[in-house]
């Protein structure tokens, strides 16, 4: 098991602000397009640990719905409501609350995620050679001709009570 999981089709993340979510085991993750660069993080707010993005795909800021913390391309909370009166976090304190990064790889028009941000991104490329047939990937996902996603294993949470 390489640890890479299929997260989304590249088309889902083609524009700035587009994001996709999934689970690597019991860990919720997200990948978002930040001005053309795909960045991935644990999908857990650093404040009080809420799952932030709940739909499989979407477009918009990386914003926690609980208290409206908004995170930037480095996973650092850039907007914290009531910071002036309630948190008093300076830049260094905000950076200390950055979301843990994950690994992101693009291969065959598909987006893959790995909990290790330094994981070998060449691995998923070996999975995606299109031979015109339906294939089951090592993570259990199933893709068809043209990199169509027929089943995405990361859509379901696993391993937690």
């Amino acid at each position: 098991m390489s640890g890479w999981v299929l997260l989304a089709h590249g088309d889902d993340l083609a524009a700035h602000g587009c994001w996709a979510t999934g689970w690597i085991g019991a860990i919720p993750v997200l990948v978002r397009n930040f001005n053309g660069t795909l960045r991935g993080f644990r999908n857990v707010c650093s404040h009080r640990f809420a799952l932030m993005l709940t739909e499989p795909t979407g477009k918009g800021p990386l914003r926690c719905p609980y208290h409206a913390w908004v995170y930037d391309q480095d996973g650092v909370p850039k907007a914290i409501p009531f910071n002036d009166s309630d948190f008093h976090l300076d830049d260094a304190a905000r950076r200390a609350l950055a979301l843990p990064a994950i690994g992101v790889a693009m291969a065959g028009g598909l987006v893959f995620a790995h909990l290790d941000p330094n994981a070998d991104s060449a691995v998923p490329a070996d999975w995606t050679a299109d031979n015109g047939t339906e294939r089951t990937l090592p993570d259990g996902s199933v893709i068809g001709p043209g990199s169509a996603i027929l089943y995405r294993s990361s859509a379901r949470r696993e391993g937690a009570c």
Partner: peptide
């Protein structure tokens, strides 16, 4: 949502 994500907090 907190229940789902808290186990993954670092």
């Amino acid at each position: 949502q907190v229940q789902q994500a808290r186990i993954a907090a670092t």
